[in-house]
Design a binder for these strands. Structure first.
Lengths: 198, 198
DNA sequence: TTTATTATGACTGACTGTCGGTCATTTATC
DNA sequence: GATAAATGACCGACAGTCAGTCATAATAAA
């Protein structure tokens, strides 16, 4: 009998070996043949593990997001101030270290908007839900600790979207040069209103 | 002398005759040949007026945005309350009547994120700047009229991005079912904090 | 225990159809 | 006949397929 490969693992291996290529060049400029060559497999093999080019990006994002979440969790556990936590939470949208992940994320959003593949939408939904619940929890904890007013919880979804909106606007236009600055202005201004005075 | 056609006008005519096709099918599913046939011109002619498929969408969006702006201006002139104005301003992201424009806008954002064409980025930047200044002006007027606190102006850019962020999230995920509801919650909550009590 | 047989998953790259984009030619007008 | 406009045949590139090869291990025969 033949060797049975771990399909899921090989999918990950191939995807990861293409990671750099996706970051340096855009999806649009890459061909399946190039990617296959990079991964060291035949073109046909690519189609045994991925539906198409977009699906490869999907896998890369999937892997990197899991890693990113673990890291963010650790990063947040060191902070106690709610305001600071929110800022840390949003730093994905501008921090130097997440630059390449952002590049991929940008492309993934673009794919999601056009291809409308069920599986990818589900992934995006799950991502959104997870991060949103996480973000909401930070606010709730701030409320419970008496740092911010109870009403703040109603900002959860919208405020969460603000980060995403600023990010999209910054990559699609030149109108927002400094996402970090804009986010900080917004959060600082908001906190002047929702912070409980001691 | 031969016929001299109004290049700019013909570009608009061709683009507009493709409008419906772009709304019903996505860009991805359409070929230049199809679009040329729809516009009643040869395939080569398309390339006399457009750089590529994306450029056609660009022209359609351009035309529709100008029309949309005029309409929005009229819509806003009837309203005096700042809160109401902001809500009207944002209704592009959920109103039934702008549905098809949103479909195109969504695709255009997707294109902008991937192709990074200089001209399109400039258009997006101009759009963003215009709408943002418009939005900012609404806030400033509210401040001048004593409806909302002066600090509110710092929310301009971020709040503007909130609308965009909720929209993107709603089309890329199933996590936001009702953009109108979410926006209203956000604006109402914010106004409880920034509204000047009489 | 060794060797031969065989079943099957893994893998491949030549091939095909499609489509974006070009250009030589034709058409229309003055 | 000069020039602008329009065209569709043509080309190259690429996504995706598929017929065929290979490697392995379970089993059978010696």
């Amino acid at each position: 009998m033949p060797i049975i490969v771990d399909k899921a693992q090989k999918r990950k291996d191939i995807a990861l070996s293409c990671k750099e290529l996706f970051i340096t060049h855009g999806i649009k400029d890459l061909t399946i043949s190039q990617l296959a060559k990079t991964a060291g497999v035949g073109k046909g093999t690519m189609y045994d593990y991925f539906k198409n080019k977009e699906d490869i990006v999907f896998e890369v994002i999937n892997i990197l997001m899991v890693k990113h979440n673990l890291h963010k969790e650790k990063e947040l556990s060191d902070i106690s101030s709610t305001k600071e936590k929110i800022k840390i939470f949003f730093n994905f949208f501008y921090s130097k270290k997440d630059e390449s992940l952002r590049t991929l994320y940008k492309e993934f959003i673009s794919i999601s908007l056009i291809t409308a593949n069920e599986e990818m939408i589900d992934f995006q939904t799950t991502c959104f839900e997870n991060y949103y619940q996480w973000f909401r929890q930070i606010l709730q904890e701030g409320i419970d600790k008496g740092e911010i007013i109870p009403h703040s919880i109603h900002f959860a979804k919208g405020l969460f979207a603000t980060g995403e909106g600023l990010f999209i606007a910054s990559v699609a236009t030149k109108a927002i040069a400094d996402v970090e600055k804009e986010l900080n202005i917004y959060i600082d201004t908001l906190f002047q209103l929702i912070e409980v005075k001691k």
